[in-house]
Amino acid sequence: MTTVHDPERKKALLLRLKRVEGQLRGIQRLIESEADCEQVAQQLAAARKALDKSFFLMVGCVMAQGDAPPDDVADLLARFA
């Protein structure tokens, strides 16, 4: 069974989230230094995309577990995507 506790999946997810955390800190520094709004928006979009990838990694985990019927996975995507 594949779970978030699978060492490889867990490592990949934690690394991705640490990168997002670093991106968010960078965005905060941009705002504090009164950076150009477009630059801040670009970095926000990149962080959002990275979080989306984390979410889809978790959806993949749900699918790999095989416990959830396809309709439940579709509902999960509809609710959170």
Rank of each mutant, 00 (worst) to 15 (best):
G66K: 07
A78C: 09
L14P: 02
T2P: 11
V73P: 05
M1R: 07
L51K: 03
T3N: 05
P70Y: 02
A64M: 03
A81S: 13
A81F: 05
K11H: 14
R25D: 02
L13R: 07
T2H: 05
E32P: 08
Q65N: 10
V40M: 08
E8C: 07
A47G: 10
Q23A: 02
D75Y: 01
A74L: 14
A74T: 15
R19F: 15
L17A: 06
S54K: 01
S54F: 02
Q43C: 06
L30K: 09
K11M: 12
R9A: 14
E21R: 11
L24F: 07
F55S: 06
F56W: 13
L57P: 04
L15Y: 10
P69H: 07
A45I: 13
D75V: 11
E38T: 09
S33T: 12
V20K: 03
V62S: 12
M1E: 14
L44Y: 01
G26D: 06
I31E: 01
D67G: 02
A81N: 10
T2Y: 05
G22T: 01
Q23L: 12
D36R: 00
M63S: 10
A46I: 01
Q28A: 06
A41K: 12
C37M: 08
M1T: 14
A47E: 01
E21K: 11
R79Y: 02
A45W: 14
D75T: 14
C37W: 12
D67S: 07
A64S: 10
F80Y: 15
A81V: 04
L15V: 00
A41N: 06
M58T: 07
I31G: 01
A50M: 08
D52L: 09
R29S: 10
L44I: 13
A74M: 09
L30C: 04
R9N: 08
A64K: 02
E8W: 04
K18M: 10
